[in-house]
Design a protein around this nucleic acid. Structure first.
Lengths: 257, 257
DNA sequence: TCAAAAGTGTTATAAATACACCCATGC
DNA sequence: GCATGGGTGTATTTATAACACTTTTGA
């Protein structure tokens, strides 16, 4: 396990001093690679386990800004629209054993004490387009990588729970938030869009009905028969009509009266 | 403005020592008086402004339990089902002036410093039946009272914002959470239920369609023609079929494909 | 010409929505 | 009898959902 230099430890100590204690932020970022939803996970310098990106809030910083900063520091991804999916702070959310159990953290006691306190964490989620999803590990991290959400069941602490809560929120907000703008590239085909919906909903969707609904809603603008050679019948290329799409989001729920 | 005794101040100091700093919880509790939605607001001993119930989280206490405890301490209401509606912590959420601006708080400096720090607050909401909604002010409070949500625009700090966020969440969760069980008494009439829906949705609803939908869903059990003398045609009494009601909550959203 | 994936159409059912009409009560 | 609020029915439109059929491509 890598050890931190004296300078790095001093730096970390200074950073932690500027933060609100016992409050953390964790981010679940989604992308769609054409087949499945994926999220980035990070591996700190001094640990083997994988976590979702997370950190602490500066005293003079809003929690929203903190989430953006932390995400950028740990993955280099920027310009994301973040939304909360919940705040987690049961009495059992106390991982001092799991954290200090690793004998060779390379941290002095004061830092170990600080990070192994009982924490309340605010969960944020966001979405990034595939082409903007290049990751670069932050200062104190060995590695960052994308994993399928279905493989997110062995993360550090209670991070697997956070991921599944974020997925549920994503699902619930599919019709009320402009998720497509964030997920899809400039141009795409209906079969591609359908696969995204299937990945988010976790179930197959009927092709005919899906197309009908999408086309009737006028959120898609046809821009040509296709781009490349395809193995079978070439799909039609579309792009989002952002204006119509934003208007189409269900601000009002149907009640039947 | 009332002053605290030396003993009370010592007690408060001991309490605060046991709490997570810079993290608070605020509760928005709804009841329905037959006409409008109402929430309880509290007035601390040493302040004139009205706030929604709120407090701090003990080190060894889950945030959910903390919300229940705080609510009980400040209103004596118990056995509520609490849900989060958001966590608030913008950099501007810093009310030291508003808090210490009141010159006669009656607190020593260390306590003023503690409570006028920058706080992140977790918002919880819940519902209580009218007949279970008797309030009793807590130890450090002058008064507790119910106010209409429409009159909640002059609360302390940013509490009016919290209330409006809670109302939005209530609205959004009307079809997915068992709110009726908490709002309605054992027996009620359809016009009464309709008024609740109108209060929550903030708009009139069609009587015919409302009745149809309610009756077709089988969540109501007819228990008699009426109870008392009424001015006009006596409405029919119903009670909730809790089993059917819970099953009827929309766990899956309609997408059209 | 065949498989595979894309694209289109048809139909049955259920839900949403707008109303019109009747009923029971007190005055 | 009539105003008032409670209760019921009907008709139109729209959405959901299942599924059959056609088209285009590469091999």
């Amino acid at each position: 396990m890598a050890q931190f230099t004296k300078e790095t430890i001093a730096l970390i100590r200074e950073e932690l001093k500027k933060c609100i204690p016992q409050l953390s932020i964790n981010c679940v970022i989604f992308r769609f690679d054409g087949e499945a939803l994926q999220i980035p996970v990070v591996q700190p310098m001094n640990a083997d386990a994988w976590s979702i990106p997370g950190g602490y809030v500066y005293q003079k910083e809003g929690i929203h800004d903190a989430a953006k900063r932390i995400l950028f520091e740990q993955t280099q991804m920027d310009n994301l629209i973040l939304s909360q999916f919940g705040t987690f702070g049961s009495a059992e959310r106390e991982f001092s054993k799991e954290i200090s159990g690793h004998t060779n953290l390379g941290f002095p006691k004061d830092i170990i004490d600080w990070i192994s306190q009982r924490f309340v964490t605010i969960g944020y989620y966001s979405i990034v387009q595939l082409k903007k999803s290049k990751l670069k590990p932050g200062l104190f991290f060995k590695e960052v990588k994308w994993i399928d959400i279905n493989d997110a069941d062995k993360l550090a602490l209670d991070h697997s729970v956070l991921v599944s809560e974020a997925v549920q929120t994503l699902r619930a907000e599919l019709q009320s938030r402009p998720l497509l703008s964030s997920f899809m590239p400039e141009t795409f085909t209906l079969p591609e869009l359908q696969k995204l919906y299937e990945a988010i909903l976790g179930r197959p969707v009927d092709r005919g009905n899906f197309r009908q609904r999408m086309l009737k809603s006028n959120i898609l603008i046809k821009i040509g028969p296709t781009r490349e050679k395809t193995k079978n019948r070439p799909p039609i290329l579309y792009r989002l009509d952002h204006k119509v799409y934003l208007d189409s989001l269900t601000h009002d729920i149907k009640y039947g009266f």
